[in-house]
Design a protein around this nucleic acid. Sequence first.
DNA 1: GTCCCTATACTCGGATAGCAAGTGTCCGAGTATAGGCGG
DNA 2: CCGCCTATACTCGGACACTTGCTATCCGAGTATAGGGAC
Lengths: 162, 162
Amino acid sequence: MRLGEGVEWGLHCATVLALLPPEASIPAARLAEFHGIPAAYLAKILQSLSSAGVIEAVPGRRGGYRLARPAADITLLDVVLAVDGEEPAFRCTEIRRRGPAAVPARKYSPACAIAGAMWQAEEAFRSSLRSTTIGDLVRQLAGTVPPEAAAKAAAWFQEALP
Amino acid sequence: MRLGEGVEWGLHCATVLALLPPEASIPAARLAEFHGIPAAYLAKILQSLSSAGVIEAVPGRRGGYRLARPAADITLLDVVLAVDGEEPAFRCTEIRRRGPAAVPARKYSPACAIAGAMWQAEEAFRSSLRSTTIGDLVRQLAGTVPPEAAAKAAAWFQEALP
DNA sequence: GTCCCTATACTCGGATAGCAAGTGTCCGAGTATAGGCGG
DNA sequence: CCGCCTATACTCGGACACTTGCTATCCGAGTATAGGGAC
């Protein structure tokens, strides 16, 4: 089980967007520069977040990206599913219905116990991600980010944005 | 996030092994035939389970695989980690320490809030898998597998094993 | 001075290569078994 | 008849190709802006 690197980028970008003034937007290239990551690939990640309705794109000369709704209404699950895809991690291929012991399909119970247990675990994973919002992250980060780094970030935004 | 197909195979094989008489073993080729899956690749999966100590290999002419310990002592997490690897799904690359707002490394808190939230979710996933054992699966399957399929399976094992 | 128009520069969006890891396969090393041989 | 020995056949274990999907990149479509000109 492996989460794509874009998930981390998407989460960090979402928290940065949550810290911007309301209605303000920031271009993908600036977000990439701020995080020290490849701009071309980050564009693809932000595109996924945009089409999923987590963030929204502002077109035009002074455009960019901003959150599509309040940070408190965006869960970590929203971001992870938008970047990584909606399909479940465990895919049941119904191998119980194959081989020499197979019987007609209608005789099987709707879901086998193995797939059920795996999906239950995945639901626990998703439930945990659903219980935290970008707003919660921002609040936590306010207490853990080094004050010096916060100051440098604020100065950088002052210069890079307007 | 995607779990390899081998995880499903490993879980099904573990339940089959749990149903065998104590001390009995079954070759990888028979397990593959029973499930209708490629034997050569299943061998690789079983190899992973064996080196992880979940199942054990019996060498020699009438050899095969069997559970390394009672089914009630094998959790689904044991199987998943053995097949899919131990490394966590979310990997923090510390992008917070990069870019124009970076400060000396020692000033950062040990773990950033984003990675912490992701790891907490993954722990919920693992905890759920830890709470179910192969023994539990066998008990559940006893009530859900079609009796007709169970009879065919028993007959097949009678003929294939000795 | 104010309004309108046009050219511009910057933005996002989707289509396009490269690479690593999962998927699938194969052959060699090792061992319990089965049969034969000798006592 | 019993025990030992050897050859065998079957097993697992690790090393070798191939395909899918993640990683990385580019160029074209679209739009708000800035400047200039007319009134």
